[in-house]
């Protein structure tokens, strides 16, 4: 196995590695730099493959992260999704399916029947082959986790309000169990491409949206179960939560999830203090800084995170969330340099 792949694997396993690996959440930037529209990107496995490999080589990244938007599962589950030419697709939440009807609807969803998912997995397989030949770690994002998927399908505002209403508790739990199954299945499909790792986004369970108490009531148990189920299947994975998770860091340690991808709203020093040796951090430089900051700003922010973990393991340097398409080239280069210098 290639040196880089080995390095990233060990870093995600929490080992103190010789150098801090770097990953970018860069699909939007890669699409732009490849001269593609988002429509071309999401509709064509060749385009996904080309955009992601070109960016990986250009910036000398250790990992490829394949991601297309936040509506891949939602579309396969029959949600109303908009597909703009020049932006990632998004699920609309205007007329969601009623909460109590959703679980039955999800029962019959066949992810492999979705042309979008077929194309995505095709691109993933090609990236995996390329990664073996070019010594790159391949992470295939399995889209939204159980909680975020439920939010999207049931309509964000309605779902969040229903969380406070005891009358809906049973419906909510049924829905979350149904989205859980969809999410687990997607991980299996992504991992079957030969990927080194899968991931999922569950940002709506973070404290930028719901309270720690709600996280404990509705999200934590499923996150713990998902971790156990994925481990039992031998699937390495990480969970992405952008937004503030400072108040639930101690909970995240308890879920058994081996790695969390967190953004700048969570304090890396606290992550180190509370979670070092328990989960690996993928993060956490502000994507906005890559657009509005200078290379020195980005370098300094990245160095600050690296300094906390240097020599101790537990970090894969990443932006922690999706980099915007106007991310400046010299800023991503400075980011990679900071990891190399660390």
């Amino acid at each position: 196995m290639g040196e880089r792949i080995e390095l990233v694997k060990r870093a995600f396993a929490g080992e103190a590695v010789e150098r801090i690996p770097v990953m970018a959440h860069n699909f939007m930037m890669a699409v732009k730099e490849a001269g593609l529209t988002h429509r071309e990107f999401r509709e064509n496995p060749d385009a996904m493959f080309r955009a992601m490999t070109e960016a990986t080589i250009k910036y000398d990244l250790d990992c490829v992260l394949l991601d297309v938007d936040t509506a891949l599962l939602a579309s396969a589950c029959g949600a109303d999704v908009t597909y703009p030419d020049d932006m990632a697709a998004v699920a609309k939440s205007e007329q969601p399916v009623p909460l109590d009807e959703l679980p039955d609807k999800l029962e019959s969803v066949d992810l492999l029947a979705s042309p979008r998912i077929q194309r995505y997995l095709e691109a993933a397989r090609r990236l995996v082959e390329w990664g073996e030949a070019n010594d790159r770690f391949i992470r295939i994002n399995a889209d939204q986790g159980p909680f975020s998927l439920a939010c999207i399908l049931a309509g964000m505002d309605e779902f969040l309000m229903d969380l406070l209403d005891e009358d809906y508790e049973e419906d909510i739990n049924r829905l979350l169990d149904a989205t859980y199954k969809v999410s687990l299945r997607m991980h299996e499909l992504c991992f079957a491409t030969g990927a080194h790792m899968t991931s999922y986004g569950n940002s709506s369970e973070g404290c930028s949206v719901i309270s720690p108490a709600m996280f404990r009531q509705f999200a934590k148990e499923r996150e713990t179960r998902l971790a156990a189920d994925l481990k039992a299947r031998g699937i390495p994975f990480l969970c992405h939560i952008c937004g503030d998770v400072n108040p639930i860091l101690a909970d995240l340690v308890e879920t058994g999830c081996p790695a969390y991808e967190l953004d700048w709203k969570t304090d890396a020093a606290r992550v180190f203090e509370i979670a070092h040796g328990k989960f690996t951090l993928s993060g956490n430089v502000d994507p906005a800084l890559f657009v509005i900051g200078s290379p020195d700003n980005v370098y300094a922010a990245a160095k600050k995170v690296c300094d906390l973990f240097r020599g101790k393991g537990g970090l894969v340097l990443c932006s922690g969330c999706a980099l915007g398409p106007q991310t400046r080239e010299e800023n991503l280069r400075a980011f990679v340099r900071a990891a190399r210098d660390a």
Partner: peptide, 12 residues
């Protein structure tokens, strides 16, 4: 001290 869901239900 309050989160998005609490604000939404109060607003409703």
């Amino acid at each position: 001290e309050a989160y998005v869901p609490e604000v939404l239900v109060a607003a409703r």
